[in-house]
Each structure stands twice: as structure tokens, then as C-alpha cells.
Computed example of a mutant assay.
Amino acid sequence: MYVRIELAYTTPKGTETFFSSDEMPAAKALLLAEDLKKTGRATEIMFVDKHDSKWTMKNLKKQMEAIQTEPYEVIVYFDGGFDRVTKTSGLGCVIYYEQNGKSWRQRKNALIEELDTNNEAEYAAFHLAVRELELLGVHRLLVNFAGDSQVVINQLKGEWPCYEAALNRWADRIEHDLDRLGIDPEYQVVSRKYNQEADRLASQALKGVEVTSVIEL
């Protein structure tokens, strides 16, 4: 969780001004705010997250305590495959995360029939991953999404235009869900070599092999 610090500062002679910091990890912001508070010159200390929600020091500490039992350090790999003959799509996603001091890996795939192109399948695989994150209880976190689809990654980053209505609908759906969950996405294009797990899951889905698993690493 990343926040910025907003506060009022008064000098010993009574000159007052307001400060707003850059975004930083919430734990670091709390440490800095505690130190500023000790000077007796910083007042009205608030923390503001990416979605402009405001937190008092007390509330942010409670939130940080709650997060310790929730997933964090989340990395998502996704991949989609499309069979032109059968008009079916295989979706796969792999989620790595930390929780309660342990490392976990979750895998999920799905077979769907209503898509028309491979790019749609890639978007649908991304959306499958977002749904799995919601079920895991991931919210208000920075999440790294990695895939070998330059189209999906660069369009979601806003670096490539999206002219196809179907892909625009998927992008809007994904962005709405990420915003609703408070997930701050980072996007990374990786080679197929580094996306083998998600690719295998998508291929298994096309063959009718359903996979749902969670293991401790």
C-alpha cells in the first residue's frame, strides 16, 4: 500500500505552511509521520492513498495490521490461447504471493466459447486473474502483472491505441475491477519462456483439463 503524507507545519515563531510528500510505502510514511509528530510542529497529519482516500494515523496503523494477514508481494502471470477450428479459448493464470510469512502459488485455468480472437483470449485470461485476486482478498496493493501479449500489456498501459470494440470492452472491465479493488497495477511484457506456466494452463484448458490449485512454496 502506497500513500503520501499531508500535514500542516508551524515554525516556533508561528509561520504556518502545508506540505504534501511523494508517494511511499505506508510503513515508511508512518515512521516519518511519527518522527515529524515528535517535533511538536507538525499537525493535521493525514495519509492519502492512490484513490484519494484519506487515513488518520490511527486508521492507517489498523489497516497495516490487517494487511499482515492478507496476501501481499503479489505477482500475476496470465496467458490466453484461441483455437480457430473449435472457436474455444483456453485461459490460464498463475499468482505468486506472500501471506502470514509464507510463500504461495495459485494456479487457475478456464475454457470459454464466446470469444473470436486470440487477443480477446489474452484479455479474458487477464480478467480471470483479476477475479482470482478478488477471491484471494487482494485489495489496496501494488500488483505486478506479467504476460507475453504485447497487445494487452501496452494497451492497458495506455501506450498503444485500442481500436477494436471487443478489446475496449475487456480493457474497461479490467480497469473498473482494478479500481474497485484498489489494486495499483504494474505491467510487464515477458517472453513466452518466462510465461510457460500460464501458457501450459491455457493449453490444458483447451484440451479439457481443468486446473485449480494452491500450494506452499
Rank of each mutant, 00 (worst) to 15 (best):
A33Y: 04
V138R: 01
Q150W: 09
E65G: 02
S149E: 03
E73Q: 12
G40R: 07
A33I: 02
T88K: 14
D116Y: 06
A121H: 07
G158P: 02
E159F: 10
T88N: 13
T43A: 08
T117E: 03
L135T: 14
N100R: 14
Q99M: 13
M46S: 14
G101S: 05
G101F: 05
W104P: 05
A146S: 14
S53P: 06
I45N: 01
N119M: 08
K50Q: 14
L133D: 02
M57G: 15
N100D: 09
P161K: 12
V151N: 04
T69F: 03
K87M: 05
V74I: 15
A110H: 12
R131S: 15
G101R: 06
A124T: 10
A29C: 10
A146L: 09
F126V: 02
K38C: 09
G40L: 08
Q68P: 04
L60M: 04
D148N: 11
L60C: 00
D148L: 13
D52R: 15
L156N: 14
S103T: 14
Y96N: 13
D49I: 11
D116E: 13
A33G: 15
A121G: 09
R131I: 12
S149V: 05
T39Q: 09
E159D: 10
T39C: 07
G90P: 05
D148Q: 12
Y123R: 00
R84Y: 04
F47W: 08
E34C: 09
A121S: 11
L135G: 06
T56I: 00
N119D: 11
K157C: 07
N118V: 15
V143L: 08
M64V: 12
R140L: 02
V152S: 01
V94N: 02
D52A: 15
P71R: 11
M46C: 13
L141G: 00
D116F: 05
G81P: 01
H139Q: 03
H51I: 13
L36G: 03
E132F: 04
Q150L: 13
F145H: 03
L111G: 02
A27Q: 15
V74D: 05
H127M: 14
E122G: 01
K61V: 02
I67S: 10
K28E: 14
E120S: 06
R41F: 09
N100S: 12
I112W: 06
N100I: 00
G92I: 08
K38A: 14
E132P: 01
K62F: 07
V138L: 02
K108D: 00
R140K: 08
E44Y: 09
K50N: 14
L128W: 00
R41I: 07
V74Q: 10
Q99S: 05
E70N: 10
A33E: 09
A26S: 15
K157P: 11
D22L: 04
M46V: 15
I153A: 05
A146M: 14
I153R: 01
E122R: 00
D116M: 07
W55V: 02
F126E: 04
E70W: 05
